[in-house]
Design a protein around this nucleic acid. Structure first.
Lengths: 197, 197, 197, 197
DNA sequence: TCGTAAGCGAGACGGTACGTCGCGTCTTGTG
DNA sequence: CACAAGACGCGACGTACCGTCTCGCTTACGA
């Protein structure tokens, strides 16, 4: 009665195969980079038929999303320390800490690239990005409610000010991302660029 | 004396072929998007041999860079109105105006994607990005000198605050870019997020 | 006591499924030709599980054999009119009449093809062919006994002279098979090619 | 001016590759049989790219036709000894001699099978068969002109009487083909089945 | 003015990966 | 047991582009 999906008959999906695929995909991204990852290669390393791959993951980015998405999302706590400054610093520090896992950086960059090249994937990618944005948006909203932030704040743009520079550095590589910069960056963000004197 | 490189004969490069290629590349990006652009396709449309293509452009992004680079770089004046606020608004407005040329957006996104997938191109792309960053950096530096901006400003990060959100919106597509937003965005940037009361 | 084979329970075979499969197979041969028939396709059209198919028919030709074998064998009376000429004409006419059922032609050609590609099926196919040869052989043997045919007749080759041209036309398609040709063909066969004058 | 095909530019076709492919195809038919031959396998053995294979041979039978056609055609002399009996015996003997090359038998059977399964190939196959039929038809026509054969001879059917039993035995395998049988077979063909007494 | 040294279109070449299809086997229910 | 469902490993399919490589032809310079 309360059955979620009404399967009747049919061999059950092999968790073994699923795990092997996700592991293989993760390993290949780590070793050779997202650009070098091929469906063929994943299937071979996982000891799995290509048809099985395509049965469950229609495209390459969908696969990597599944292999990396959880790992990437896990590291996304919603800090709630009572002050927007400390909340933001905590979040941004965690954000910048991705550089401590170069292969995750690789995956992130690859997924972002794919989203540019494949419109159908772009949709899924944006959805994922929205889940991350929601965290920061919530955090900022609390700051507004507490009167810590400008009441006329454009939340959308404010969130962009957090993620934008992060992605920009990640993608262009002109400057390093350093967790130690989280605090000064947030301070600047809150205080603005203009001279206070 | 005049010729620096010591050519001693040989057919001269065909400007006709060069133009046909760049036109074809631009058209293909416009019509089908950067992701669909292939060297094979460009050669076919341009009525040019593949060997000619590869003689002058080693890779796909190098080609698109040539086809769009000028257009992308041209519209990047260094405003100098005497005030950092007006300078910034002028620049950012111009920046956001790229959305009025959807195919340029397409090209920008494609080049960014390629930079993620092809490390050797990443270098060229970063160089190009630096030329754009230099404009903003100069503009901000003048602001500091004039005492309009905080004297301890981290120029690098400040530039990221201008370009970061721009690219982030361009790439993720969660929110539109609107030249009309240039002024409020800059105002927020200068004033910071914190409540002024 | 009544049952010869000692089945001790278990669901009984579904005649419904059997019929659905044979019908589907026949239809597919008719519609798309033997070459396009697949086990997968038959199962799908019959609304039957692949496992059921394989339980009862090991191979594609075995299936088609079951679907068409009866129809092909049925119309093969052993005429016995008292004269070899009339017997032969009756048989050959009946043989040529297969062209009135194009899908049976299709099945015959497909089975012949399969016999060339699958050695294990070739055995079954030859057995089937032998049952048909036996009819003609018997008919001819009676002719020899009655003194109508050459006493030193090579029966094997004589039978080949009946079936050979039939199959050859069926398979190569260079000339039509026409039941009306049965009589002249038999006359020529009996009289030989050499001038009688 | 008299140029047969007006090629202008383009790398010339590699005879090396062509030969490697035809050799590989021939070897594979010999070793494993026509049914086991795959485009993939031929390409691998020939050390040639699959794309090269498909560039020149659209289908598997087209390839085997090219690999075996010449060999099969070479052995097809047009005997002209002055008498239809000796002409026929010479031809038929040569025909039956194919059994001395089991792999050619394999190829012939495979091609015949393919012609049944692939309508588009059937056309090419019939054309090839016609070239062989023409030889026998010519031979018989001379016999008619010389008064050796019945003047009202149905040439088409007469040719079928030569090839039909040959193919029938080749395909069904119920009886061996023996070059030594050529003479008696032809004798029977000319004299007919009916008792001469 | 003529030879040499490019550039050019054409297009074949060896490759790699693509995404699909059908195979025959298997593992689940349920009847 | 039979059966529907359907996932699985497998192998070949035919296609698309890749980047490289001959070809024969066409320019332009400079000796």
């Amino acid at each position: 009665m309360a059955g979620t999906n009404a399967r009747t008959g049919g061999r059950v999906r092999s968790e073994e195969a699923r795990d092997a695929v996700l592991t293989a995909a993760a390993e290949l991204v780590e070793e050779a980079g997202y650009g070098e990852l091929t469906m063929e290669g994943v299937a071979a390393r996982a000891g799995v038929a290509k048809s099985t791959l395509y049965r469950w993951w229609k495209t390459r980015p969908a696969l990597v999303m599944d292999a990396y998405g959880p790992a990437l999302a896990r590291r996304m706590p919603e800090p709630d320390t009572g002050g927007v400054a400390t909340d933001l610093v905590a979040f941004v520090e965690q954000l910048y800490r991705v550089v401590e896992h170069p292969f995750r950086v690789n995956a992130l960059r690859g997924l972002m690239a794919e989203a540019q090249l494949d419109p159908s994937f772009a949709v899924r990618f944006e959805e994922w990005a929205q889940t991350r944005r929601a965290v920061v948006a919530g955090l900022l909203r609390r700051g507004v409610e507490r009167g810590e932030l400008a009441p006329d704040l454009d939340l959308e743009y404010a969130v962009d000010l957090v993620f934008g520079p992060f992605w920009y550095r990640l993608l262009v590589g002109h400057a390093p991302l350093d967790p130690a910069d989280a605090e000064p960056h947030v301070r600047r963000l809150l205080g603005g660029l203009a001279a206070t004197a």
